[in-house]
Amino acid sequence: MNRRRHRRLAAFKAVVYVVLGLFFLLPIAAMVEFATRGVGISSPRTLTAFTSIGSDPELVDAITASLELAVITSLGMLALLLPTMIWIRLRVPQMVRPVELVCLTPLTIPAIVLVVGFAPIYNWIEINVSDSILMLALAYLVLVLPYCYRALDAGLSAVDIRTLSEAARSLGASWATVMWRIIVPNMSSAVSNACLLCVAVVLGEFTVANLLNFENLQVAISILGTGNASVSIALAVVSLVFVFFFLLLLSFLGRALSRRRGGAARA
């Protein structure tokens, strides 16, 4: 009876993996196939589309801008969110819930709605501050808040920050030392998780950039798609693979760090 159920479950799982595997992998395989097509019907496969990514200056600009935005947003998130989260946990605990609520709000307000409110703000910024695409980081920081809050919250709740900070303070450490040299090193996996999530969100962002008339990676892919489909699909493949390995790295990194910590605690 039990063995029969196991065999049935194994068969069910095999069917699910094969069918859904096909559904999910076919479009990606098709992108690779499309991007490597030659000009004529019978012409051989070519990697021209991939190699010409680097020779289009507009495209290179967009890629650079997206990578810069990813770095700036990550750093901005660390500078703004992390100290605030630690500070309120130590000094103003009654603020923990309200800050959590604020951080999770962007989940319930779609980006397409936020961008309507961003439009007049960015009009002002363009005139009075700068019209650089890097200004987008200010908006992206809002978009990544919920993901980063969750990642950092998980890390903070696993560390006894009160004891650590009291010990450090009583030895004469400043608040800055407590944060950056005592607490952060104890939650490094949560910090790296939050940064990787930031990078993934920023590299995939289209809505805000497109409607505020900035050309980031995704907007460039979209514009290129109408003219030179194979290059834009090649770029899409590259960015998809890049983020996939990024997130895979994240899952391995998180496990390695937690295992190391577990081992140290037992020792």
């Binding site: 076919l26 098709a30 699909i233 960015s239 983020v243």
Partner: peptide, 27 residues
């Protein structure tokens, strides 16, 4: 990890993936 990418990174890439699969010139 795959689900993490696909649920977040959909967007433009996904549209092109399907154009490459079952568009008029699709695979």
């Amino acid at each position: 990890a795959f689900c993490g990418v696909l649920s977040q990174f959909g967007g433009v890439t996904l549209a092109f993936a399907f154009i490459a699969t079952i568009g008029t010139e699709g695979f």
